[in-house]
């Protein structure tokens, strides 16, 4: 009973290997301190490679990405905090170097835009349906006795007309 389970585990393990992201971090870049290296990886994933623009510096094979990975490790070894390392690069390359844009005056539309559009849509829907209900009520005024009689007469003759 244990063998098939083992086989399954091995297969799942192999499948996992196959879908691992192709990291561009080279072995010779890595720091010997695993804690610092882990921090360098987490920072590297948040920084944009400015040459390829849609990859993090950890995923990119570009030369500049390689230099920036080394720089991140240099700063960490020098005792910088994660935030200081990121700020170091923002000072030189701007907010664009961060894959997750910060919330500030320049990115107001970016962050609040979707919520704004949602509110616009909800507002539009409310106005639309309220408008419809309004016209519905206007279209059904109360009929007087006389009018009801006339309507019934019309409906009856209409029904007979259909049968004929």
């Amino acid at each position: 009973m244990r063998k098939p389970a083992l086989m399954l585990a091995a297969l799942i393990g192999l499948y996992g290997l196959q879908i691992l992201p192709a990291l561009a971090v080279r072995p010779d870049e890595m720091l010997t301190d695993p804690k610092l290296e882990a921090r360098a990886r987490s920072i590297g994933k948040q920084l944009r490679c400015l040459v390829c623009q849609n990859e993090s510096i950890d995923d990119s094979d570009a030369d500049l990405a390689h230099d920036l990975r080394l720089l991140v490790r240099q700063r960490l070894l020098a005792g910088d905090s994660d935030a200081q390392v990121k700020q170091y690069l923002v000072d030189r390359y701007g907010d664009y170097v961060l894959l997750k844009p910060p919330f500030n005056a320049d990115t107001l539309v970016l962050w609040l835009g979707p919520a704004g559009f949602f509110l616009l849509a909800v507002g539009g829907a409310v106005l639309f349906y309220r408008g419809r209900r309004g016209t519905g009520a206007e279209a059904a005024p109360v009929l007087s006795e006389d009018e009801i009689k006339r309507a019934k007469a019309l409906l009856e003759t209409d029904g007979e007309g259909d049968k004929a």
Partner: peptide, 8 residues
């Protein structure tokens, strides 16, 4: 280059 913000 990095200190100047060179990216190419």
């Amino acid at each position: 280059g990095i200190n100047f913000g060179v990216y190419g």
